[in-house]
């Protein structure tokens, strides 16, 4: 648009090879994707849960949608003695059997001071222990960030091994924003002391939905070097 643009582009052309497009594309295609991280366990679910725990998250597993709602209810009760929850306008969330846990989220955008938000991830990444959400109507960005607790459901079928797989899968959809979340908000800016809840959620809880062996959480805890901490606490019934 401006002189600055043409100046800068001219200077770059001067310093570049100025190859024809076909040659650039060919050179790029030869570069491949590069190695990804070694998984802590060959089983995708166990690897994913292990890395979530390493990222200071907490985990639950649920073999059915009904069970997922129940564990979320327990989580809310345990941390907030509350049943309040906000969730985006995601059809998958709306369709959960909320009555089974006596819960009913408010669907929409989270506000400051909200206790907990629930997201339904579009993918879970085993390599990094991350969940992926896309900003937009289904999951406003504020829902990831403003509440005290961020609870995320990720379906076993949506787990991928590699980080770049998750991004490549979203290429055609072109969402407004892609949020790869891998832990509660954290900072060590004061005296290198790690504190959670810097700006965003103080806690990050991942519910893996699908048929996985019941002992996979214990397995993941062992691999993450954790004793049975939160998961071992007796929870009141919802």
């Amino acid at each position: 648009m401006s002189d600055a643009r043409s100046d800068i582009l001219a200077r770059i052309r001067h310093a570049s090879a100025c190859l024809p497009e076909a040659e650039v594309k060919l050179a790029l295609s030869r570069l491949g994707a590069g190695p990804s991280a070694t998984l802590p366990h060959p089983d995708l679910a166990i690897a994913f849960l292990t890395n979530v725990l390493k990222n200071q998250g907490t985990v639950d597993i649920a073999s059915s949608r009904s069970e997922a709602v129940v564990v979320i209810g327990k989580y809310l009760y345990e941390h907030h003695r509350s049943r309040k929850l906000v969730a985006g306008n995601d059809a998958r969330l709306a369709a959960l059997p909320w009555r089974d846990a006596g819960l009913l989220p408010r669907f929409g955008e989270a506000e400051s001071g909200e206790l907990a938000a629930l997201s339904y991830a579009v993918a879970g990444i085993a390599e990094t222990g991350s969940i992926v959400t896309c900003t937009g109507r289904n999951n406003p960005a504020a829902n990831n960030l403003l509440p005290e607790d961020h609870i995320v459901i990720v379906a076993l079928d949506d787990l991928v091994e590699r980080y770049d797989e998750a991004l490549d899968a979203l290429q055609s959809q072109r969402p407004r924003g892609i949020n790869v979340i891998s832990g509660p908000s954290g900072t060590a800016d004061i005296a290198m002391h790690m504190v959670h809840g810097a700006h965003g959620p103080r806690r990050w809880h991942v519910v893996l939905l699908g048929h996985v062996p019941a002992d996979c959480v214990e397995h993941a805890q062992a691999l993450a070097g954790l004793a049975n901490e939160r998961q071992a606490e007796p929870l009141p019934d919802a």
Partner: peptide, 24 residues
């Protein structure tokens, strides 16, 4: 940087709010 396998928030932004969005 920190020895993390990934940072807590790794975000990709494409641009402004779209038609049905409620924030952004």
């Amino acid at each position: 940087t920190t020895g993390q396998s990934i940072s807590c928030y790794t975000s990709y932004y494409s641009g402004p709010r779209r038609q049905d969005d409620i924030d952004g």
